[in-house]
Design a protein around this nucleic acid. Structure first.
Length: 575
RNA sequence: GCGUCUGUAGCUCAGCUGGAUAGAGCAACGGACUUCUAAUCCGUAGGCCGCAGGUUCGAAUCCUGCCAGACGCGCCA
């Protein structure tokens, strides 16, 4: 693994201990994996539990710890190496830590934490993917912001990301919509109500269809017409799509998210026949109950449906066609699909089909699932009209932020811009702060909470740091020199230790496709900084002390901004 | 019925590739603004880590079974 020059204490410890234990033939990697962070800072900063070594050395763990403590030369990295029972505990030498970490951050600036491990290779990230003619609601938030964060994180690690918005712009729902439009809609009403009117028609279709099932047949017929090039049907389809895209764009503008490709489902229509032919040629297709399937019994999965009995395609077919196209077009080393966990089986199935087609890169297809968003414990449902529009949520968050600014900092310039950054940041952070896989119940109260572990908390911390730097007249990018020994208070050292962890956290977030690792980390970093802020006055008479503290403040500000950036959140200088 | 995921403080969650006394935030209570932004900080209280077995020197973490919830299981995506 390429270290990109980051200080790595685990590696140092593995090296030192490995040298002492060289006769045992123990691999340094094995030692590295054993090293952990103690639960209490009083015990030390890093620890090597000696239980497992005990088997190898045939000695009691506490004896091993004791002996190792005597044989390891701590300088210049450690202030002390102590055995505490069966643990070998390492206490970091403050000067070395402070000097190495802060100088690295000063040198790297906004690139601190980045790496070159991606080597410019392509990663395709399929995310957001709202359905045309349906509202962009809070249920789409997760895919959109998780995908965007992964995009930024992998770019930061040296990959070239291709963000694809696989729009739901095809399928039977358009038949339903056209049916509803013909029966109860009008051009005027749609022009006026836009997506809300389309949604209204869609909801009406479903309520009416419960009484009159023949509507479903009519809808299928209209979709058949779309697929077979009927001009009237296609024109309506294009119109609905246009209206939807304009509305989606407003949300993406608020979030400041963009895509490299907007190739939705319809884009693959002319690429599907070839896939069917290939599946046939490879003898993977079977006929079952009139439909064409790929049997997956051998893999403990239900069959993957490829064609309906009327010959039209299904989404697995489309996904396979899209994957083949993307591999050919982008030569990806990884393709991520950020969608709800409910689709896990679907992805497992078609990934397997791609593998059975003989493509070794099937292993590079990754489903990144996330939990279900519900509303007061009930499922979101476009059909029943039970949704919270994302645009409404963002707008409300921005309004609330503006109100808070007017109350707390009425003299602030560019209130609107800041309110947007903070309001949107609160919503985005809310979606990124917990493990992807957790189901969430949307609540206005929680989404609009700006205190505690929230986006605004991080932004506020950043703004405070900026404020100190502004008052001190320290300009970013300036040649910053400082006396590391001056940062010797526990509160300051805690902050430096948090800064040290950033590169490691970014890497974990990428490896686990889990932006919340960065979210949690930033909360801890901000918390340690706020503790320092309260305990230590930065602008003091002692020039060396002030300078050292300013560098720390600058480093925190920089890492907070970088981390927030990776999550797709802005870091205002004032708020 | 089968499968996947989730279950940790009143609420929302970290911790889950096994390690030292299980951590945060919110809510509650009590403190800290003449000093760099109190959207902050400090403290108090709050836990059969769903239940029961097993593996291990050691289990919130791994295995098995059970319970509860969510989701999925052929012509929607």
């Amino acid at each position: 693994m390429q270290k990109n020059g980051y200080l790595d204490y685990k590696e140092i410890i593995a090296e030192k201990v490995g040298t002492v234990l060289v006769e045992t033939g123990l691999e340094k990697e094995a030692l590295y994996a054993l090293i952990e962070y103690p639960p209490d800072e009083k015990l030390g900063d890093l620890a090597l539990p000696c239980f497992q070594l005990s088997k190898l050395l045939k000695k009691a763990p506490n004896v091993i710890a004791q002996e190792l403590a005597g044989q390891i030369d701590p300088t210049p990295y450690f202030a002390a190496v102590k055995a505490t029972g069966p643990y070998l505990n390492f206490f970091l030498a403050p000067e070395f830590l402070v000097k190495t970490v802060l100088e690295k951050i000063v040198t790297d600036g906004a690139n601190y934490g980045s790496r070159t491990i991606g080597g410019g290779q392509n990663i395709v990230i399929d995310f957001s993917a709202p359905n045309i003619a349906k509202p962009f609601h809070v249920g789409h938030l997760c895919s959109t912001v998780i995908g965007n964060a992964l995009y930024k994180i992998f770019e930061f690690l040296g990959y070239n990301c291709i963000g694809i918005n696989h729009l739901g712009d095809w399928g039977t729902q358009f038949g339903k919509l056209i049916t509803a439009y013909k029966k109860w809609g009008s051009a005027e009403a749609v022009e006026k109500g836009l997506i809300k009117e389309l949604m209204h028609l869609y909801v009406k279709f479903h309520t009416e269809a419960e009484q009159d099932p023949s509507l479903e047949d009519e809808a299928r017929e209209w979709f058949w017409k779309i697929e077979n090039g009927d001009e009237e049907a296609l024109a309506l389809w294009r119109w609905f799509k246009e209206i939807s895209l304009e509305e989606f764009q407003r949300v993406y503008d608020l979030l400041e998210i963009s895509f490299d490709s907007m190739a939705g489902e319809s884009f693959y229509n002319d690429k599907i026949d070839a896939v069917i032919e290939e599946l046939k040629a490879k003898q993977l297709l079977e006929e079952s109950e009139g439909a064409a399937i790929v049997n997956l019994d051998d893999y403990g999965m239900p069959p993957c449906l490829i064609l309906k009995k009327d010959g039209s395609t299904l989404y697995a077919t489309r996904d396979i066609a899209a994957a083949l196209y993307r591999k050919k077009t982008y030569q990806f080393v990884k393709a991520l699909y950020v969608t709800g966990a409910a689709q896990s089986l679907h992805f497992k199935q078609w990934f397997k089909v791609v593998e059975l087609m003989g493509y070794e890169w099937a292993k590079d297809l990754v489903h990144v699932p996330f939990g279900l968003v519900s509303l007061k414990g009930e499922k979101l449902s476009t059909r029943k009209g039970r949704v919270v529009l994302l645009e409404d949520l963002l707008k409300t968050a921005i309004e609330k932020t503006l109100a808070i600014i007017n109350e707390k900092n009425p003299g602030l310039l560019q209130k609107e811009e800041v309110a947007q950054m903070v309001g949107v940041g609160a919503v985005v952070f809310g979606a990124l702060s917990v493990n992807r896989i957790k189901d969430v119940t949307f609540s206005w109260e929680e989404a609009l909470n700006f205190e505690g572990e929230t986006g605004p908390y991080l932004q506020y911390t950043h703004a405070r740091a900026c404020s100190i730097l502004r008052k001190a007249g320290l300009t970013p990018g300036a040649d910053i020199t400082f006396v590391p020994d001056k940062l010797n208070e526990p509160a300051a050292l805690r902050v430096v230790k948090m800064l040290y962890l950033f590169p490691e956290k970014v890497l974990s977030a990428a490896n686990e496709y889990e932006p919340s690792i960065i979210s949690r980390y930033l909360i801890e970093l901000a918390h340690s900084f706020n503790g320092f802020y309260h305990e230590c006055q930065v602008l003091v008479d002692d020039r060396d002390l002030q300078q050292a503290r300013l560098v720390l403040v600058w480093a925190v500000k920089t890492v907070l901004a970088t981390g927030l950036g990776l999550l797709g959140i802005k870091a205002p200088e004032q708020m």
